[in-house]
Amino acid sequence: MSLVSYERHDGVARIRLSDGERGNPLDQAMVDALARAVRQARVDDVHVVVLSGEGRAFSFGGDVSAFGAAEDPEQLIDDLAESLHRVVSELHRMDAVVVSVVRGPAAGAGLSLASAADLVIAGTSARFTLAYTKIGLSPDGGSSLLTASIGLHRALRVALLNPVLTAEEMRAVGLVAEVHADEELESGVEQVVATLRSGSRAAQVEAKRLLRETATPGAEAALRRETLAIRARADSPDGREGVAAFLAKRTPVFPSNNP
């Protein structure tokens, strides 16, 4: 089974996470397949990239069971974060306008990946949460760049309190561009694509570059800091306890809370 599907037609590349039965987990195999699809879209020099997830979720994020089973979780997460960050950087830097389509949960790195797009279009079933700190990890995947999208204190709330936010709540804070009923989501996305395709591609390329470079001039450095931070957290006592507790479906008892 292909973990990521890629189709190109009439200047539009459609990239779909295709492991819907497992909630499209962003494990190493999935991220590698996603990287190949994104590179292909760049080679094809498309005008618009539409990024979506198959099944009941956009993505539940990282495969926590793999973290728990790893002999060297620090190295596993370092490799995975670096791979994901290369994809995020590619989405930011490519000339194509990137549209993410979120139906169901976008959790952890799934939220980070969705927010790497230039426009986020969501169905009413969409739910957004980071949840890293709940399992003793620090956010990655470009999560720190949410400060530019939704503001510092909103981003801190999302990172520290881990609320599960609806599509309308995310639209209200500026991350989501449009919300549609799930049964109308596809037609809503097609209207966005049509609007982009009818506009000047050259002007859109310049607009994307200007706005991104102004809003997040230190994006690459931020992604590197995220990698170093989550790598350290993965092999820390809190990180190991958080992952173990998540897999055992119990409340974690973090060692750092009891110095």
Rank of each mutant, 00 (worst) to 15 (best):
S5D: 01
R8S: 10
G11H: 08
R14P: 06
L17V: 09
S18H: 15
R22P: 03
L26F: 11
A29W: 01
V31M: 02
D32I: 11
A35G: 14
V46I: 04
E54N: 15
R56T: 10
R56F: 12
S59P: 01
S59T: 05
G62D: 13
G62I: 12
D63I: 09
A66I: 02
G68P: 06
E71W: 02
L76E: 03
A81G: 10
V88Y: 09
R93T: 09
S100D: 11
V102T: 02
R103T: 04
G104Y: 05
P105T: 11
A106S: 12
A107F: 14
A117D: 13
D118G: 08
T124E: 09
A126L: 00
G136F: 01
D140H: 10
S143K: 05
T147K: 13
G151E: 11
G151V: 09
L152K: 13
H153M: 08
A167L: 01
M170Q: 09
V176S: 02
V176I: 12
V176W: 00
E183N: 12
L185F: 00
G188W: 00
V189A: 01
Q191C: 00
A194D: 08
G199L: 01
A203G: 14
A207G: 03
L210K: 03
E213Y: 08
E213S: 08
E226Y: 12
L228N: 15
A229K: 08
I230L: 04
P237V: 10
R240N: 10
R240Q: 13
E241N: 12
A244N: 14
F246C: 04
K249H: 14
